[in-house]
Amino acid sequence: MSNDLDNFVAISSALTGIAASKLRPSLDTHKTAQAYLDYATEHGGSAFTELMGLSPAEVLEAVANEPDGDIAIMANCVTLMWYLGAWYFPDGLLAYKQGSSSFAPSVVISSDAYTQGWAWKVGQAHPMGYSELRYGYWSGQPSTLSDLVGGE
């Protein structure tokens, strides 16, 4: 399972652009990566199994070469999961991408997933109703993007 988790985090980092050490800190208090791996394994079907058999570079290549293919859609699901804390149903996501549906159905994975969505940090913001920041934070500069998501 550790290899699966390592691979999942590596693929997730490649897809999201967020440092692996941020997605899965050495002292991992939220255990988000494990929770997402478990969730995707249960709900992602064969496409997720196939995605997990690839290297991060191969996943990126599949997304670029066949953006509506099963691997790419599953990669989109994984990316959205990290950013929004929600699981987008692959069929609905494909229909939305192709324009045959105006809505991509999803389910928020957990209250913890909601607060830990990376969209908030990339926006140097916080989710509605939850902030780790202290009273009066709005009068100061937010943390830098590199501090929040890792990298330069």
């Binding site: 800190p25 002292l27 208090t29 780790e132 202290r134």
Partner: peptide
């Protein structure tokens, strides 16, 4: 706090949550 010196989380990433 698991990361008492965090520059982004004033709570220092508490554990247990």
């Amino acid at each position: 706090p698991t990361d008492g010196g965090s520059t982004t989380d004033p709570m220092g990433a508490p554990f247990p949550l």
